[in-house]
């Protein structure tokens, strides 16, 4: 994704909201409780976003909603399940990179179609990963990093093969024309533990989640892969402002099985946007490191399609196609 798309999206979203508002008012769209399927186990960022949404749908708009965690196989188990459900607005999925933009390229065959199998309804927001190095290395900028790595290659930890942090690592290597040694972990916490034990030279992970380490001087965040600096951490520069065009974001949105009624789609879209317009909800999102952007359903659908292409390039460059 590049910043132009994001800006255009944000600008169009304002128009979209005003035009959609004429069609639908925020409010309950089903008498039945709605299931929000999450592609990860309970406790992660996705799960927390889904629970936040479910809670506010009920308290603010009287729409009962429950979170249904169906983790497994990089989100493809959950996506396949949702694609087979009736498009009556009672089964929704918290869509994200894993099943919709990474898996279509990574896996030779998918049991579902990430575009035609779904009606993408609302974009929620995105968080951005970044590059962290040991404070003892003395490196504070990407320029110094390139100089250092050209002398002695660094090891970097990621959340696993094919994870966003791994793909970012490969993208950074390519953009900076350096070669680093990838060390995959199961999730970011064990990688951070090895980084703290000084077994790892560097690691890639979501930046806001590690703000405590940055403040305590335990890690130096060299760059964040968002188009703009994060307001929570204004001291961390972007890759782009240091002269390297690397933008990789971890986005979340809401989607339904294909063929949902257009009026209901508009209704859900309005309600979800209204929930995330609430300042209190936005604060909670920001704490999770997610920057909220309002977008129309059509733009969101186009964005998913566009991102499949963006990630395909990254994944092929990283050489992790199955």
């Amino acid at each position: 994704m590049n910043s132009k798309t994001t800006f255009a999206a944000a600008a169009l979203a304002v128009v979209a909201i005003s035009s959609n508002a004429a069609l639908a008012e925020p409010g309950a769209w089903s008498d039945e409780p709605v299931r929000i399927v999450v592609t990860f186990p309970p406790g992660g960022t996705s799960d927390l976003v889904a629970r936040l949404l479910a809670q506010h749908l009920d308290t603010d708009y009287g729409q009962k909603a429950v979170v249904d965690n169906r983790p497994g196989a990089a989100g493809t188990v959950a996506a396949d399940y949702v694609a087979q459900q009736a498009p009556d607005g009672t089964t929704l999925i918290l869509s994200n990179n894993a099943p919709f933009t990474i898996s279509p390229t990574r896996f030779a065959s998918l049991p579902y179609d990430p575009i035609d199998g779904f009606t993408h309804i609302a974009y929620i927001g995105a968080s951005a990963p970044g590059l962290f190095v040991q404070p003892s290395s003395g490196i504070t900028t990407l320029e110094e990093y390139v100089a250092f790595v050209n002398e002695t290659p660094m090891t970097y930890g990621s959340s696993g093969v094919g994870s966003i942090s791994h793909i970012l690592g490969e993208a950074v290597d390519a953009a900076l024309s350096v070669e680093s040694i990838h060390v995959p972990y199961q999730g970011s916490s064990p990688a951070i533990q090895d980084f703290r034990a000084r077994a790892l030279d560097s690691f890639y992970d979501m930046v806001v989640q590690n703000s405590a380490m940055i403040e305590d001087g335990e890690a130096v965040a060299l760059a964040i892969a968002s188009p703009e600096r994060n307001p929570q951490l204004p001291g961390v520069p972007t890759f782009r402002e240091q002269g390297y065009d690397v933008v990789i974001e971890n986005w979340v949105g809401l989607s339904a099985p294909a063929g949902i009624d257009p009026d209901m789609r508009a209704q859900i879209h309005e309600t979800v946007l209204a929930v995330f317009a609430d300042p209190e909800v936005q604060t909670k999102l920001t704490d999770l490191g997610i920057t909220h952007v309002a977008m129309s359903s059509e733009e969101y659908e186009a964005l998913v399609g566009e991102l499949i292409g963006v990630w395909a390039t990254l994944i092929e460059a990283a050489g992790i196609k199955e």
Partner: peptide, 19 residues
């Protein structure tokens, strides 16, 4: 999935065994 290379091992094509 083999953690180090990302290759699936002995799943016999069953997606539920991927993890």
């Amino acid at each position: 999935i083999d953690l180090t290379t990302g290759v699936t091992r002995f799943t016999m094509g069953i997606p539920e065994l991927r993890d």
